[in-house]
């Protein structure tokens, strides 16, 4: 049984607009039988945090290409996929979107040409 995990999630570069414009989130992942991994974390974020247009954040079971993920200030592409971690409370995960036309702007009621 893995203990609950406290995480600091930070969204930036436009990605925060999918989370009510809030950049910093302190969350606690519930305890579960298997250790948490990124794949599960993404599902959890999608279910519990994502406010709008999940297709701009996740694609399949990973993040949408163009969104950079840093775990404790290191590029997650360095980690072998599916790696699980026993996190301490200091774990900080940062997501930064470098996609320009995400179809997200400050006036979500207005449809852009992208149709998002």
């Amino acid at each position: 049984m893995a203990a609950p995990i406290a995480l600091h999630l930070e969204f930036g570069g436009g990605a925060e607009l999918l989370f009510d414009g809030v950049k910093d989130h302190h969350v606690t992942l519930p305890s579960q039988s298997e250790p948490w991994d990124m794949k599960q974390l993404l599902v959890w974020i999608q279910r519990n945090m994502l406010k709008e247009r999940p297709e701009l954040f996740v694609q399949g079971d990973t993040v949408r290409p163009g969104i950079l993920v840093l775990i404790n200030d290191a590029d997650w592409e360095l980690m072998v996929s599916g790696v699980s971690w026993s996190t301490s409370f200091r774990t900080k995960i940062m997501w930064s979107s470098s996609l320009l036309c995400m179809g997200v702007n400050r006036r979500p009621h207005k449809k852009t040409e992208c149709g998002h």
């Binding site: 436009g14 163009g66 996609l99 320009l100 036309c101 179809g103 702007n105 400050r106 852009t112």
Partner: peptide
């Protein structure tokens, strides 16, 4: 790092994605 509030540059957006 905020997007332009008038940025519906759809064509580039598709090419980018």
């Amino acid at each position: 790092s905020t997007e332009c509030i008038y940025s519906p540059n759809a064509y580039r957006g598709h090419a980018r994605a």
